[in-house]
Design a protein around this nucleic acid. Structure first.
Lengths: 242, 242
DNA sequence: TCCCGCGCAAGAGCACTGCTCTCGCTTTGG
DNA sequence: CCAAAGCGAGAGCAGTGCTCTTGCGCGGGA
């Protein structure tokens, strides 16, 4: 990203990365609760106090890992959105399920990192400002899919009216994001976003144990239903955008 | 529940309850991460080692609190299900939203306890067998609402077919629970169950900050949509059960 | 009624944690 | 070339979960 000035700054970046890597390893191995600064330092062959030159506190280390995790899911979602080829690339529902499945796959592969960002907020919390932008990436990917569908005329606005307050919030959100979608669609999109993570969390956190066995099929099915609920149509409809 | 034999056992129960109460207070105040056996003991005027006579480890204390929390939400859901009066009592959708709102209200009132059960699994985990039964109560309340609707002919089976594996899981679950509902309905019910907690978790964990302001209306709306997705009908339909 | 045993609290202690402060060494930029 | 800033090492503080040993006192059987 930014140019590296001298050898000192270069070393600092390397050590910072090494600390995060080792911390991520411990996170994956034992979970956030067991992540210990001293153990990280020990594994890296340095003394614990030296680590404080790089992260002022344990919570700051965790915050760095949180940001990385948000970016990792976000990137998974974004590449899934633009990686479809052939006929599927044009079908909004296929893109929708691709994004959702990418989130699920990442979560199952990195359960502890997932728990870090979509589980209980760990410390006395209040998420720092720096996390909000990476945290929005998955939501933005979903919005992107729906925008494409809307532009292509493959979006069927829901018939049932929504309360004014809800539509108002949705429109405000759309304005803030520079997205020109109907309020009702945006509102359902936010709902689907939250519900998607309900499905993923239940699976990752083991709530589906002894309840659902065919988890992939179940997820695919549920996510398809979510796509319909925001107005994505399975079969292309003749309808002009705008 | 069980008869109290002697004064000794009586005292033991009282102290156990006092420990859990104090632990719950600390949980509510600072969160699960900050819950400390020593602090609980200190507050109760005893020494930390004495506490181990009642709970063999910190995780055991947490497990006890988890069971209590599951029972608390479960009870909130159950009373909401059967507390409706007048015309609402007959409308399945009203009961459905009542149950969902009860869960949300409880979660917002007890965020840390909620995080304990529906957030990240805390220790090396693997939930003890004793937690599974209380954990099912909310789900069972939702199933109960749908069963009543089914019996009253107020349930419209979804038209779209589901994958066989999903229906199979749903039927197995229904058999295990002794519930005679169509597989497709049960499958969507499980999905709605997970998605409900997605909505609640996002609100409790602050993911809706700066996104949704009219949270109650939004929740109500989303939950209504979930009701429809499992087949509950807003307006009574003439249709014979079975 | 006595009295022995069991349940219990207390205290010391171990290994660990996050975090602070000081002390020197090394690198760096003016 | 030299002061200043960055850095690692070590000691130390307060706190944690958990274990072990030591006694005290209450309760139920004789």
């Amino acid at each position: 990203m930014t140019a590296i000035r001298g050898a000192r700054e270069r070393a600092r970046n390397e050590i910072t990365a090494a600390i995060k890597d080792e911390a991520r390893r411990q996170l994956a191995a034992e979970g956030a609760a067991k992540l210990s600064l001293r153990a990280v330092a020990r594994e890296l062959g340095m003394v614990s106090s030296a680590l404080y030159r790089y992260f002022p506190s344990r919570d700051d280390l965790l915050t760095a890992l949180i940001v990385d995790a948000y970016n990792a899911v976000g990137e998974a979602a974004e590449t899934a959105r633009s990686a479809l080829t052939g006929a599927d690339a044009r079908r909004p529902v296929a893109r929708w399920t691709a994004v959702c499945s990418a989130v699920r796959t990442w979560a199952l592969a990195h359960p502890h990192e997932y728990a870090l960002i979509y589980g209980s907020p760990v410390p006395g919390y209040t998420a720092p400002r720096t996390t909000t932008e990476p945290a929005a990436r998955v939501g933005l990917a979903l919005i992107g899919v729906v925008r494409e569908a809307y532009a292509a005329g493959a979006l069927k606005e829901p018939a049932e009216p929504l309360p004014d307050a809800v539509v108002g919030d949705a429109l405000a959100l759309g304005a803030e994001l520079g997205v020109e979608l109907p309020g009702a669609v945006l509102a359902r999109l936010v709902g689907a976003w939250a519900q998607l993570f309900g499905l993923v969390s239940f699976e990752v956190f083991g709530q589906f144990n002894r309840v659902i066995e065919a988890r992939s099929e179940f997820f695919e099915q549920s996510v398809l239903q979510l796509a319909h609920s925001v107005g994505l149509t399975t079969h292309r409809e003749r309808r002009t955008a705008r």
